[in-house]
């Protein structure tokens, strides 16, 4: 790739407000995991875009219980999002084309971050841009904000400077944008991979070589639903991103492929509804998981998944969740 790897990433000092207790916690085995320099009390986070900026779900449970909060994707300037309809349910899933509606990085830092700073849970901020300089600017401002513990790049959006090719589907464009962001931040940098590619292992490798500290996958899979009477797409945006249990086997397979391709930690997601689903991802190689669509179905899904993992460790006689990460057995 001809890209210099940033020096010694382990030196970056990012400490979540309250380090995990190590073994114990809720009286069972250890659930804590590390994503680069980020220490999580358990491997369960929220998936960007399904959890707002944390306020909505704080009515339902204590956000301190989460491994991390990943907030709705932000751009340097606010976005009003797509026209409606924006969502449609599909068999065991949903298609969405929200259009990255968000209040912008600055309003987030001013209006939403103080709320999230109250919790002893690391905040991971998802961000995106239309152009490389927008990514750089967003990353810079987020890196200077008090209370942002890691940043997650959404590269599943089109590049205005390159004929609207999606950043994350072209290895060269992806290398450019990840390298540029890497140079601007000392925070743990997570690259969220698009599943709309032929070889996701290759894309993960590009992210790793460009300086990513971790990869998260999968983003939604592009889909379309047609209204047969009107002979039109149901969504105003024509296409949307498919999520929910329908995509889970694809996501698990992709995590497994990426696990074989890179050494950096993987955050796995795609249709996780319960602890067993989450464990599939960990066994396939994910160090942590993100819960998305399940939040919509059940606002306390994340908490039930954490509790289910604790039970699993107990039932299996394991003392540490890290023992099962990448423990997939292949062949005889």
């Amino acid at each position: 790739m001809g890209i210099e790897k940033p020096e010694d990433r382990s030196q970056k000092s990012v400490t979540p407000p309250n380090p995990p207790l190590g073994k114990g916690g809720h009286g069972g085995g250890n659930l804590s995991v590390n994503i680069a320099s980020l220490k999580l009390k358990n491997p369960v986070m929220t998936a960007s875009g399904t959890f707002g900026y944390g306020e909505e779900y704080s009515e339902f449970f204590d956000l301190n219980r989460l491994g991390a909060v990943v907030v709705k994707g932000l751009s340097i300037t606010p976005r009003q999002g797509n026209p409606t309809p924006r969502i449609v349910e599909t068999p065991a899933g949903m298609l969405n084309a929200i259009g990255l509606q968000n209040i912008g990085v600055r309003a987030f830092i001013k209006e939403k971050l103080p709320f999230l700073r109250q919790f002893r849970t690391p905040v991971i901020v998802n961000f995106f841009g239309d152009r490389i300089d927008e990514y750089i600017q967003a990353a810079e401002e987020l890196s200077n904000a008090d209370g942002v513990h890691a940043i997650e790049m959404n590269i599943s959006c089109p590049n205005k400077q390159a004929g609207w090719i999606v950043f994350g589907t072209d290895p060269k464009i992806m290398e450019q944008v990840v390298t540029a962001v890497r140079k601007t931040t000392n925070l743990p940098l997570i690259v969220k991979l698009s599943p709309n590619v032929t070889d996701i292992g290759l894309m993960a490798k590009v992210a790793e070589n460009s300086g990513a500290d971790a990869v998260s996958l999968i983003n939604t899979i592009t889909g379309m639903v047609v209204d047969v009477k009107r002979r039109r797409p149901v969504l105003a945006n024509n296409t949307g991103g498919l999520s929910g249990p329908a995509v889970r086997p694809i996501a698990v397979r992709m995590v497994w492929e990426v696990y074989k391709a890179v050494k950096i930690p993987i955050i796995g997601m795609g249709g996780i509804m319960n602890a067993s689903d989450a464990l599939e991802f960990l066994i396939a190689g994910a160090r942590a998981v993100a819960v998305g669509t399940a939040n919509f179905v059940n606002p306390t899904a994340t908490i039930e998944i954490i509790e289910g993992m604790e039970r699993f460790l107990k039932e299996e006689g394991l003392s540490d969740i890290n023992e099962i990460i990448g423990s997939l057995k292949i062949g005889s």
Binding site: G49, T50, F51, G52, E56, Y57, E59, K72, G81, P83, T84, P85, R86, I87, V88, E89, M94, N96, I98, Q101, T293, N295, F296, P299
Partner: peptide, 17 residues
Amino acid sequence: EEHMACGVGACLGCVVK
């Protein structure tokens, strides 16, 4: 009335102009 995913303000699916 709008189609909703979460009903609690998180998904931004049910917006009206």
